[in-house]
Each structure stands twice: as structure tokens, then as C-alpha cells.
Write a protein that binds this DNA or RNA. Structure first.
Lengths: 206, 206
DNA sequence: CTTTGTGAACTTCTTCACAGCT
DNA sequence: AGCTGTGAAGAAGTTCACAAAG
């Protein structure tokens, strides 16, 4: 175990997670760096190095025990416990995300939706209550929210960000095209659909 | 001009694009690596190096001419011309993406939607015709589609991928959690919402 | 005197090659 | 013998420091 891992290792851990889930459906009980490498399109050395940053999970000459490695990686990624999410901005994208099937099996659960539209506030969507976004500090404390998903118009990002900073929320998944930056005690992941397409058009233009 | 640029430079170009758009709304006519660095949270050296990979756009002692640099970066990213998109899978996420406001101003336009639900096929959504996904090869040729956006269930990815390979489509934006890999003549960008959240939970778990 | 553009130094990440267990 | 785990080598990317140009 070496323990200071490169930043890209975290992303690859999520690939291993999916590969392991696939192998589990095949009722395998063992895997190898070679097999994981093929499934993830990485090199076997890379797989071994990544896993070794967090411990010695394998047996030399044998490979990695499957369910054990799977549990370990879930634990590393932190999806062995429940996370309490909220959605901010119930537009088209917000609705799509709340309905997204992949979350419950990952123990990611929405406990609140925030809106500034008086017609929506007080109602609910998919069984989740819709609160006034200005009540965010109180509601976040009451419901012990961990992570906020931003699906709001770009021009509201700064205001909502300041509201979130008043809470114990420590993670933001930001779908606006106004990028935010992580700070101590507040980790931000930006996802910009427009940006992803620009990366495609860049490569196609050559 | 040095021209073999690092991979992360492409991502940063999209940040510069947004920073330049912001500066243009301020009616500025000049900017500097320092100003761009502040707006993008990067270092001024990084900004200069990135821009220099593609040419000498600045004047020493002066800075970069704003509208000119903006046009140049749009050209580099390839959004100076129109791109013809299609959406595959008209679920919640698909609907959100088709309705997304940011695309028209980027000359990204949807020309077709593909579905396998007979109730949807033949109709239209937001003025865009809905075709049978099995007709993809013919329709893609007819409409000269460039880029496909995958918003389908994971278990249909392989099938749809094979259909896309029979066309002139050269870019895929894949929103499923089954990652695809780029090939020669087919550039793939994967966006997995579940993965983004896993990266957040990883960092919050420590 | 300011700000760009860029080799050189440095840092981070990946691949190699093999020692170490089973 | 077979596959993991890991220092060492190599590759990729960033920061430094300064020369060049307005």
C-alpha cells in the first residue's frame, strides 16, 4: 500500500466498480488485473497500481477475490453508506435527474427539492417535497442534506451557491454552464453539456 | 506556435470561450493572460501556453485583442460552423437536452430524434421528427447528421452503437453509464451522472 | 515598463520490468 | 508457473524564469 494516489485514479475506481458489477452478474468469484483491464480499456499495470494505492487486495498467482474487492471499492468510493441529496431547480433536467433509476441502488436519495417558482413551492415531485430556495439553510440543517444538485439557470448560480455555503452541504454537482470551484469543506463537480459537445466539435474539426 | 498541445488544453479552451463571452458583455476590447487566468481559476502562464499552442494571438506589453481572440477560439473549438445533431432515446433526459437553451447559440441543432417506442415513432417533439431507431443508417445519411446524443437505457447501448457505426456520424455524446471508447473516425465523450456523484462521494468520504 | 511567448526545470502520471507470494 | 505489487524509467503536463517585443 502506497496511498498517495494520482487524481485520475478516482475516476478509474468508478470504472472498476462497473466492471466488477458486470462480473458479479456473471457469477464469477475471482478476477484479475488482466480481466479488469480488458473491461475498462486500461492496462493491467494501471489496474494493479490503482488498487495497490488502497491496499493489497489480490493474491499473487491467483487474482482478486470478486465480492470482497467489490465491497472494498464501494467503501472507497463511499457508496456503502447513504447520501442525502437535494435538487435545486426543478426544470426539465432536474426532473430527469430525480427520476433517474441509477440512484437508489447507489444509496443516493433525494430528500428535498428547492425552487423559486411560487407555483411549485409547497408541492411535491415524485414524492419529494418542494421548498422555497430561500429556506435552504434551515431545511438543509433539518434534513441533514449532504449533496446539492444544481439544475438552475446560469444567472442564479452565485446566489444559490452562497445559500449552500451557509449549510453543512459538502458536495455540489453543478449542471449549469457557470463553473464553480471547490473549496475546503465544499467539493464541486461541474458538468456542462455544452462543454462536452464543444470537446466533440473540437476533435471533429481536425 | 508550438502545436502539439496537451490533452487538458482542449478542456481549458472551453473555459476561455466562456470567459471571453463574459468579457464581451462588458464591452472590453482587450484582455490579458492575467485577466483570463482570474476568470478561469488557472495560472496566467497556463493561459499563455495554451493559447500559444495555436498561434501568437497577443501583443507583448498589451494583451490579447478580444473579439479576434474570441473568433479564433470559436474556430479552434469548431463552433463557427453548424453541427447537425440527433438524439437517440426520448426519455426525460432526452427531452431536457433537446429543450436546452444553450445549443442554438452554439450552432448545435437537432435534426432528428430516434426511438424504439412505436407510440412515439412518426410523431415529433419540439418540432423535431421522431424516427424508428432501426432507420438510423438511412436517416443519418439523408439528413447528414454529424453527432449523436445517447440518452437510452444502458442495455441498448451496444445495439445503437453498431447502428451509428454504419453512418457518417463521427461524434457521440453518451449519457448512459455504459462507457464507450473512441475509435478512428468516431469520437465518443461519455457523461455519467452516477459517476460524477461517485467522484463527489469519494472525496466526501475522507 | 508591461505583457507575451517559450525553453528549461519541475511535478505528476503511466509504463516497464521484475521481485515476491501463493 | 502465474499473477500481484512496486521501485525505477519514461512520458506528459505544469510552472518557472526570462528574453523578446510593443
Amino acid at each position: 500500500m502506497k496511498s498517495q494516489f494520482p487524481f485520475p485514479t478516482v475516476i478509474r475506481l468508478t470504472y472498476y466498480l462497473r466492471a466488477l458489477e458486470f462480473l458479479l452478474t456473471q457469477n464469477k468469484s475471482e478476477t484479475s488485473s488482466d480481466e479488469l483491464a480488458k473491461l475498462t480499456n486500461l492496462s493491467p499495470e494501471q489496474v494493479r497500481k490503482d488498487l495497490a494505492y488502497f491496499g493489497s487486495f489480490g493474491k499473487r498467482g491467483k487474482g482478486y477475490p470478486l465480492p470482497k474487492l467489490y465491497e472494498k471499492i464501494k467503501e472507497l468510493i463511499g457508496i456503502n453508506k447513504e447520501w442525502r441529496l437535494c435538487l435545486i431547480g426543478l426544470g426539465n433536467l432536474g426532473k430527469a435527474i430525480v427520476r433517474f433509476k441509477g440512484f437508489p441502488e447507489r444509496k443516493l436519495r433525494f430528500y428535498a427539492i428547492f425552487e423559486n417558482d411560487p407555483k411549485k413551492i409547497g408541492g411535491e415531485f415524485q414524492g419529494i417535497r418542494i421548498f422555497d430556495v430561500n429556506k435552504l439553510p434551515e431545511v438543509a440543517r433539518e434534513l441533514s442534506l449532504d449533496i446539492a444538485v444544481f439544475t438552475i439557470p446560469d444567472d442564479q448560480v452565485d446566489k444559490v451557491y452562497e445559500l449552500v455555503r451557509k449549510t453543512n452541504i459538502r458536495g455540489i454537482l453543478n449542471f449549469t454552464s457557470a463553473p464553480l470551484h471547490s473549496e475546503k469543506d465544499l467539493f464541486v463537480k461541474n458538468v456542462s453539456i455544452a462543454q462536452e459537445l464543444e470537446i466533440i466539435t473540437f476533435y471533429l474539426s481536425k
